[in-house]
Write a protein that binds this DNA or RNA. Structure first.
Lengths: 117, 117
DNA sequence: TTCGGTGCAAATTTTTTGCATCTAC
DNA sequence: GTAGATGCAAAAAATTTGCACCGAA
């Protein structure tokens, strides 16, 4: 199942993944998909992206990377190589002044994806 | 209602806001709260933050600012003054190389809030 | 009297859970 | 057998919608 998710480069919803899995595992149930996704998320193997006006999406790529939510089609794409854009060290510093501990950050860019431009 | 939301500095869920509104508008219904929040969001007066493992939260502050989701209490705090941390211009540049148009971005830091540190 | 907004309840949508079963050891 | 994972269906949680009604213009 982890393989099935990693094989894709989009960020399927649980239901999408479920349908993608059906041909290979004809009897798999949606409940199981959710269960396993939740499990993999806890173990840190995958990431769960809360959806804006759409079901949550799952991301099988563990390496740090950011996302683009397309305002036209609603899909979520990867945006690798954006590392230089955010200075996390500086973020920690600034946050510390407010007695807040920053451990990580999640960035979702908004705009138009390749297909919708 | 917009006032009611702006009066708070936290980022209430629809239900929280509903309960906060009850004393003043004893007969207001949850449906109406959702309806008006959706409306205000469309008009751009407020922002809706998809919740990670919790109901969506609403933010009455229109000025650009980032958020911290506390991994201990699950709450969402404002993190103003983080402007220097992200270079949006650069983000646009990098994204453009991939034929993607970046219009804005939403950053959610993760860590521990004031109270939970 | 008309119209937009509202309360209320029912419906939808998304996700989780209980429970009987089934498989691999 | 036993333990853990699964299918299925029902439940729960969050949000949206339909509809009748009410108050301001």
């Amino acid at each position: 199942m982890l393989q099935a998710l990693r094989a894709r480069h989009d960020h399927p919803t649980a239901e999408t993944l479920y349908h993608a899995l059906r041909p290979t595992y004809p009897n798999i149930s949606l409940g199981t998909v959710y269960r396993n996704l939740a499990l993999l998320e806890q173990v840190g193997e995958i990431q769960r992206l809360p959806g804006q006006d759409s079901p949550d999406r799952y991301d099988g790529i563990t390496a740090a990377h950011d996302h683009l939510r397309c305002r036209a089609c609603g899909g979520v794409d990867d945006l690798p190589d954006m590392g230089a854009v955010v200075d996390l060290g500086r973020a920690r510093e600034i946050a510390a002044r407010q007695n807040v501990a920053v451990e990580g950050c999640r960035i979702v860019f908004e705009g138009l994806c390749k297909n919708c431009t």
